[in-house]
Amino acid sequence: MKPARFDYVAAASAEEALEALAQEGGNARILAGGQSLLPMLNMRLARPTVLIDIMGVDEWRAVDRDGDVLRIGAAVRQVALEQDPDLARFQPLLAAALPWVGHPQTRSRGTVCGSIAHADPSAELPLVLVALGGTVHLRSRRRKRVLSAQNFFTGMMSTAREDDELIEAIALPKARTRTGYAFREVARRHGDFAIVACAAVVNGVRAQLAVGGVADRPALCELPAPGAAGLDEALDDFAWSLEARDDLHATARYRRELVRRLGRTTLEEAVRCRA
């Protein structure tokens, strides 16, 4: 339960980090808050030969809320957003989901982008990114590119990031008028990874539900709004489409039932919260 050996590089600028990453490629891992990476290292599920620490890169520490998106830099810790009294106004779904991410003792160090990069299928932040239709801003020495959340997550803990790329920031659309947002989760204990987590965005007759913890990545579905005909059938189809599997934590059947029920409750809550 101790990490294997690695070199450690503390990058002082974006260029330094990208240069090191270009040289080391797939042997390197980016170290930000370390709250997803360190467990992997300690259990030796990951054995990089070099860690590139990016917490000293000033330009990645910023949360930019000019314009109609919230742009969160690679070195922004979860706690920084959680403690922002205006967050619920700018992006209520993120504000609702953050307290469910790990524990206060891990949010104090963990970063938002780090959780996205780790791409655990039951993690809350990737789910929020997908539900809101956010974007992932990748950068390497060669180029910058922007991927939609859905193109970024490619499977269980795997993403479209290439070996020499890192997530420089993510961007989430700010709260829109007449749109309701809600987040719900079922886990054995608060702070555990979700058995099923739901994030809903409802705008008029347009309702979207994203579900985490069931498929190999967060799944998004357009559904009839609560009150409209056909919601139950659509939720049932969605639940089946996720191809849930039995595991230690819950059966596939239980997960489908949660998608149907928690999905409906979350959508209804989003309708009530509509601004």
Binding site: Y8, A10, L31, G34, Q35, L38, P39, N42, L51, D53, M55, V79, P104, Q105, T106, S108, R109
Partner: peptide, 19 residues
Amino acid sequence: CTVEIDGQPGRACLTLAVQ
């Protein structure tokens, strides 16, 4: 292993000494 790191409780087992 929780310790306070720069004023906030954090996991010492998920933190490298060099960090």
